[in-house]
Design a protein around this nucleic acid. Sequence first.
DNA 1: AGCAATTCGCAAAAAAATTGCACATCTATA
DNA 2: TATAGATGTGCAATTTTTTTGCGAATTGCT
Lengths: 158, 158
Amino acid sequence: MKKRPAVTIDNFDLKILQLVQVDNMMPQRVIAERIGLSPPAVARRLQQLRESGVIRKDIAIVNETAVARPLTIIVHVTTENERLDLLDAMKDRFLRSRQVQQCYYVTGEMDFILIVNVKDMAEYNEMTRELFFEGGNVKSFRTCVSMENVKTNGPIPL
Amino acid sequence: MKKRPAVTIDNFDLKILQLVQVDNMMPQRVIAERIGLSPPAVARRLQQLRESGVIRKDIAIVNETAVARPLTIIVHVTTENERLDLLDAMKDRFLRSRQVQQCYYVTGEMDFILIVNVKDMAEYNEMTRELFFEGGNVKSFRTCVSMENVKTNGPIPL
DNA sequence: AGCAATTCGCAAAAAAATTGCACATCTATA
DNA sequence: TATAGATGTGCAATTTTTTTGCGAATTGCT
């Protein structure tokens, strides 16, 4: 019988994840000495964590205001109809929208919660038109403008 | 008169940001050939983008389910009192909480919107006790459990 | 036009990541 | 208990990437 991929994560892996979750540009040599392994061992573990999908991706976080897109808006969307194919179409639309940085399908009165980035309210207005009015299946949506992004991209506690 | 840091971002910078926002492990050589610059030029630009804070940080995104913390919960918090010092204390508490991955201070009826990661509802329960009941200044909070994280960590459109 | 400041590319140097390999550890099984 | 297989490690060598020095080209400003 073939062995399953068996994604086993030991304490070394957890320590590595704790570190790269905060700074993935840290040299493997530094990671190695902090957790008590050799650099090649760290490299092999990192490679496996990436291939197995435990590390989903590695990205730079850019300061929105520095690139003139200072507005973060949280949107609560209620659907007209909860038919699966219609929901899938909505997810797809949100997934594809460049302004939508995050999309959650949630329980409760609301159906979707979006976190959106725009340069100004005009862009937001246009986005709502495309995404909610022309897109279809949206009963209503509620807009919360963020006055302050107190915390973003926090690490997952391990 | 001394010149200010003058964070000027040209088209090359924008292209670099587009790329590293999706994959910051891409070698500078590859970035260089894609945008039509030499590797050292790319390196210098990246360094400046990081030092100037246009790139806020570089992180690995880990798959929550793979590390046995599968629950994403969106929480809407309403405050008792909007005194500045009390609000700051709340922000500080949310900022420090390991479960809170994101925190937005927003306009509207709600005051804070949190995005939380927990391994199960027991952990969430305990967190609400610490953060909302014992923490003080919370009038009420509403809990939305995410059934599906349709999109996370989307890039800022440039 | 001309000067100063910036930014570039190339080539060399330094640093980091990867690979090959021998050895240690653990498991399952004869 | 012995043993074969699988897994994972560290070291050393190799390869790749990043960084640095420097002269040349470009840009901005007077």
